[in-house]
Design a protein around this nucleic acid. Structure first.
Ligand SMILES: [Mg+2]
Ligand SMILES: [Mg+2]
Lengths: 613, 613
DNA sequence: ACGGTGTTTATAAACAAGATG
DNA sequence: GCCATCTTGTTTATAAACACC
């Protein structure tokens, strides 16, 4: 059904190369060019997303450190027109200035979304170019090729090994399943079946406990709601419309068609939708906005969860930019854009701690000028629901989520000051290789007794039948089970020294299983991937979902529902509001260059500049 | 600080003796006495809670199967007056009819709460007796004495063995900690310290991972909110006021002073507070009521989590009831009431699936008559918040929680029909004894190397220092750690055949730890208690919390805030509204009779009737 | 009696970001 | 200033207990 990209060069990134407050610093400072003129504003390297009412397509461009945005836009627009499309709708600017290439979070997120949802109505935009933001940076030196993995993929690109765990979280798979139905609802059993059908791993190698996890996820996440049929006989699971991003497996594959292996934290999606929501609402300042809800992340963030995603840069016309863009090679970009397969790893982690208030000056937005500045104000939105907190409402500070200021103290500027950029750690290829050598064995252990695969239909109690999907503590003890798959967590010690680090004492001889792992101190760093290489996923054409069907609504549709009033809400205004939206995250991007199909391998450090003449 | 009750006879119950829809059936049927006259209404055995405006105290009474409520009330009131108090405020009727004794869920919950919060303003009540309900039943034959445990407690009643895990869930302990502060906020470190101070188990025997769990709980549960100080330097954890039941450890101990070893599902508390909320609001039908929020359960429900709770029946006057009460011995009740220590096991499980609408007839409420009847209507309340679901709103059916009707089909009566009463399974005392023999060893294993207790202060990475509270996968392998405590779940197989069920194959000899347990099929039935006997907890006088302090508010205070209007909202009206409150659960009650201090032991089946002459 | 479904807690773990030395 | 480690915070996975149908 789905077609996998051929021979992608897969890059691996070991660490999130973002700083926490990239956005804050860049937009808050305003120090770079306080003049406020968009045309002449100087931005550091990074992605820019440009919204313009006349735009109708998406373009990805790499821009250097300093760029004349007006000129860039002109060039992009001209290129768009020239290429036959009515004109670029959104521009996604990737920096291409040299060694210190950067990417950003939000705008790349936007890129993803724009590509996914071409038909997405972003709400009324300003007449002129207002939504220009530089939103962060990413040290692409963290991207490294992974020869072993690429070789493997070359060997059998489309194989889709059933023994490999899909890179999606349970929550994501459930959404995929439910959204695959027109009526957007499914029984538990149907969900099981859908997942088994689409991810044979669960039918064939996973322990029965995976069904327990499915049920656990259904119950745990508020986004999954149980409905019952009229006769009260059947339970259907649905997705709360406000939370439904209508993501389907097809869509994920659809995104996996072109340019970039990217990893994104799906909470960015939340941010995006919250932005959309804000835009739609006429008075964005005090929109009820459902407030309490937090959109849950879609995919986990383990190394195990690399997802092949390709950006179908549709009219993907790369254009030649202004003087400073000399280093940038359009052909190179185009090559990368149109061919390579890639993997997107979507991880949950949220980005914005206490996102400080950031707002575009409303008056200036009409004048094609971009003002990115920080409002040192903690807007007390979201106290609209009947149970608004009586006193505490400011939010800011450390990590993330619903931070509440103690007692409404003076609104302070919450931008963190530290700017240390600890970019990705080099990947230990040898260790990785070792892991890869190990894992097949584990899988064989698991699946080498396929005769048992469907024998899990026996009583429970103290019998040993594996029947139930609810794991249980056996009253007495029984020997290991055939499906007892890869107890990596508890028993991976046996795979001695897969880890690059060598413990002085060496592997303990005692097979004494008891929690030896606990001995290791905090914040592990299991650099050895548990499931190292996600298989190549095929690409298929998405069927429906182009237009709002009717009854089952997605959050996008809901957001659009109220829209239509062309007000002047800039993206930055959305950011201000997002201060109230607890979820906001980052995107990581791994780039795979299909043009480099066969050379690669030796490189341990790759950077944009390597591909720029 | 706290004083532990002496030598309580501890009873154990192995299974929840409630039916799912006890309330539904009993009140919905109306078949028992369709006449509707409260005075002559016949109730099955069970607890009754009687609210009367003139009542000022709480009384516990055991009533037989059929009772003339009017007569009971009269007797109770007279007795109350006679005993010096102005008159009974609430009556809690415990059945004492004989073999088929029953207890209920909601009313016992109320009993607990009334005892806990004598000062709790229950809101305006009707002038006459309106809030009489029979709300379920409990087969007390499920209650069994636990000789071993009682013996142990006799040995050292107050010891509070540090090696035993406290019976509270992390969520509960965090609440205890935070609520112990006047300002109702704490830093993470303070929470750690508080828990360590109050539950030495965590300082001495628990694995470092318990701190991870604390953090996990703080993040996971919406009720815990992080605030930051003005300078943004310090993070305080607080409890969302709407959710704060202001439970403190002291309160729990306070409740542990008298009558009954009871186990309750703490979601019942949610129900109660929702009731309170409804009462306060003038127009109870469409109160905003915060709707979405679900109060989280306080304590887990494992056998491990037995909590000593005593009902301080203050003026605890037991009274002689009407003719049919002949079997009931007030002295016996009094004995039980005032002395025995007991254990309450609070478990999260929610009770009401789709709780059908239950309402008291308003007109009749004025006439001292009790009408418990079912309104076969699914009141679509709770769609008040901005994000009310557009179409789906009915709730009903199978298990519990936010059930949503498919498409607003006709509101059907959701009472389940099945009435099979699978009451408690007899407890295998011998097996239990074996368990007790085993566990000390485990604990010794854990704590016998106290020299390591605080050595967990070393680097991470691949070193083996136990430093971090975040468990990690060790890159290589290291030997077992000293704190590796009681990995009960994974290793309890060694305690062979503690379970009453005997596996034909017998205990496997292989100490091979690897997930042998998985082999057992679903819905385990670990009848072997993991932590069988929660230690005796001491009792201390609660300090504050008698009056609303000021800034940090609890849900009760919040509820009272709007109150003052003495309207005629009956409890059953609260029940109707509770149909919208997703959480509603059950209470289990274990009775401990301090009067039986030393005999006990031999009995395997104990029942109310055994103590009724 | 048991399996399927649903809810909730415990625990391990990965990872991010700030703090600290 | 860089680095390693620790602390704090967020999120997912898995096992498990238990309830109800
Ligand atoms: Mg749910
Ligand atoms: Mg929280």
């Amino acid at each position: 059904m789905r077609r996998s990209p051929r021979r992608p060069l897969i890059l691996r990134r070991r660490k999130l190369p973002f700083q926490q407050n990239d956005l804050l610093e860049s937009s808050a400072s305003g120090s770079k060019d306080p003049s406020g003129s968009a045309a002449s504003q100087s931005f550091p390297d990074g992605i820019c997303i440009l919204d313009h009412p006349s735009m109708s397509d998406t373009q990805v461009v790499v821009v250097p450190k300093t760029v004349d945005l007006q000129g860039v836009i002109g060039a992009l627009t001209a290129k768009g027109k020239e290429s036959g499309v009515q004109g670029p709708n959104k521009f996604i600017l990737l920096s291409g200035s040299g060694g210190s290439e950067t990417l950003d979070c939000f705008s790349f997120f936007n890129c993803i979304n724009l590509v996914i949802n071409k038909d997405l109505d972003c709400g009324p935009l300003n007449d002129s170019l207002t939504n220009i933001q530089w939103l962060g940076k990413m040290n692409t030196s963290a991207l490294e090729p992974d020869p072993a993995q690429n070789a493997e993929i070359d060997a059998e690109a489309v194989k889709q090994p059933v023994t490999e765990r899909p890179p999606y979280s349970y929550m994501a798979m459930i959404q995929f399943a439910i959204n695959s139905r027109k009526d957007k609802r499914m029984t538990l059993k149907e969900i099981y079946t859908w997942i088994e059908d689409n991810f044979p791993y669960f039918r064939q190698v996973a322990k029965p406990g995976w069904k327990n996890s499915i049920r656990h996820n259904l119950s745990l996440h508020d986004m999954f709601i149980r409905e019952t049929s009229a006769d009260n006989k059947i339970s259907f699971w649905t997705i709360r419309p406000e939370d439904n991003r209508c993501l389907t497996l097809d869509q994920v594959y659809k995104v996996s068609t072109t340019l970039t292996t990217c990893t994104l934290y799906s909470d960015v999606l939340s941010f995006y939708f919250s932005q959309q929501q804000k835009k739609v609402v006429p008075d964005s300042r005090k929109t009820p906005s459902g407030s309490e809800r937090r959109i849950k992340p879609l995919l986990p963030r383990t190394d195990a969860y690399l997802v092949p995603i390709q950006l179908p840069i549709a009219a993907a016309s790369s254009i030649y930019l202004q003087p400073s863009l000399a280093q940038f090679s359009p052909s190179c970009l185009k090559q990368n854009t149109l061919r390579g397969g890639k993997r997107v790893r979507i991880a949950p982690k949220v980005t914005q701690d206490g996102v400080p208030a950031v707002a575009v000056n409303p008056q200036e937005s009409k004048e094609s000028k971009v003002m990115v500045k920080v409002e040192p104000v903690c807007v007390p939105i979201k106290c609209e629901t009947p149970k608004c907190l009586p006193k505490r409402q400011a939010r800011s500070s450390r990590r993330k989520q619903h931070l509440v200021h103690s007692r409404q103290e003076e609104p302070v500027l919450l931008c963190s000051d530290s700017s240390l950029f600890d970019s990705g750690v080099g990947f230990d290829a040898s260790a990785f290789q070792e892991m890869r050598d190990m894992e097949p064995d584990e899988h064989q252990q698991e699946s080498h007794s396929p005769n048992q695969e469907f024998s899990f239909k026996t009583p429970i109690k103290s019998r040993s039948h594996l029947t139930s999907s609810t794991p249980s503590k056996p009253p007495s003890n029984i020997l290991a089970e055939p499906w007892k798959v890869t107890p990596v967590h508890k028993e991976s010690q046996n795979l001695l020294d897969c880890s690059p680090i060598h413990t002085p004492g060496g592997p303990a001889v005692t097979p004494l299983h008891d929690y030896t792992n606990f001995s290791f101190s905090s914040t592990p760093f299991k650099d050895v991937p548990l499931f190292n290489s996600p298989r190549e996923l095929l690409t298929s054409v998405p069927s429906r979902l182009t237009g709002p069907t009717d009854s089952p609504r997605c959050s996008r549709e809901l957001l659009q529902a109220g829209g239509g009033t062309p007000t002047n809400h800039s993206i930055t205004e959305g950011l201000v509001l997002d201060t109230m939206n607890d979820s906001l995250s980052k995107i990581l991007v791994d780039i795979s260059f299909s043009g480099l199909d066969d050379e690669d391998l030796g490189m341990t450090n790759i950077s944009w500049s390597d591909f720029i003449p």
